[in-house]
Nucleic acid binder design. Structure first.
Length: 271
DNA sequence: AAAAGCCCCTGGATGC
DNA sequence: TGCATCCAGGGGCTTT
């Protein structure tokens, strides 16, 4: 569930309130994707300076090091003055002077990793290869188009890979390609500059609108105060196999690319 | 270097 | 109702 809009909506829902909080205790539950990298007790006494986002990672800046939080496929955060007793899928918790931050993640593809700094090897391994931030100025047409030209894989899979542009997962890749009128199977290298420009605009548009809608909630996603997203009601193609295209009425098709479902309109996205 | 496959894990939906 | 099978929004790692 969590792609850029969901991660950013989560960040916005608790960043201001946790900034300045002092950590009273930290606890881990069942193993997540990677070990925390520090004894939880050593987080006590640290201050949370703020929360940033890079791609689908949240960066919790501490006065000593930072915590990288990834929500994986099924993770969500809660932040409140008090929370109910931990359940079986709560795997990380930070009790602070401002409230408790908790990660719930049934599938445990998510992660919380402490690193000494962004240049630490563990941080570079996770953040170093990330592409441009789609909602920032460094996502410019010249470098986007140049990066696409080097890749012969399908445009959908290149968007999802995260090394050209970050934050675009399975839902928004399908949606952006629909908005740009591009067939998801087209080789990235074959996009003309005007079509790359349309795609760039479509990515910004769909991510921006999804963020404004609080993200997409297909099953369990909610931000740190429990609010669900509403973008699923605006989806043009995702999850709409066989239903009429909202633009031309042609039945939406689903195919499989790299073990993932891709939805598209065969008429609006001719190639 | 790039691309394709595999795999981590659990829960929900579907089919028999 | 019970059980097996398939599928799911991510992404690092290994193999081609």
């Amino acid at each position: 569930m969590p792609e850029l809009p969901e991660v950013e909506a989560t960040r916005l829902s608790f960043a201001d309130r946790i900034a300045g909080a002092r950590i009273l205790s930290a606890a881990t539950g069942k193993a997540l994707r990677w070990p925390l990298g520090i004894a939880p007790a050593r987080l006590s006494g640290r201050t949370v300076r703020g929360v940033r986002r890079r791609g689908k990672y949240l960066l919790l800046d501490l006065d000593e090091g930072l915590l990288l939080i990834h929500l994986g496929m099924s993770g969500s955060l809660s932040f409140a003055a008090s929370l109910p007793p931990p359940g079986p899928h709560d795997h990380f918790e930070l009790v602070t002077t401002r409230g408790t931050l908790r990660l719930n993640d049934p599938r445990r593809f998510g992660a919380v990793v402490w690193v000494a700094g962004e240049e630490a090897p563990a941080a570079r391994k996770l953040l170093g290869g990330l592409g441009a931030e789609p909602l920032s100025a460094d996502f410019d047409l010249a470098s986007f188009h140049a990066a696409l030209k080097k890749r012969r894989a399908s445009i959908k899979q290149v968007l999802m890979a995260g090394d050209v542009v970050v934050g675009v997962g399975n839902i928004y890749a399908s949606e952006a390609l629909f908005l740009a009128g591009i067939r998801p199977t087209l080789s990235a290298a074959r996009l003309s500059r005007p079509r790359a420009e349309r795609l760039q605009a479509a990515i910004r548009d769909v991510l921006g609108r999804a963020l404004a809608a609080g993200g997409t909630t297909l099953r369990n996603y909610s931000n740190a105060v429990g609010e669900r997203g509403n973008f699923q009601f605006e989806a043009m193609v995702y999850g709409r196999e066989g239903q009429p295209c909202r633009v031309c009425g042609t039945p939406i098709r689903v195919i499989r690319q790299g073990q993932r479902a891709t939805y598209f309109c065969p008429n609006c996205q001719k190639n």
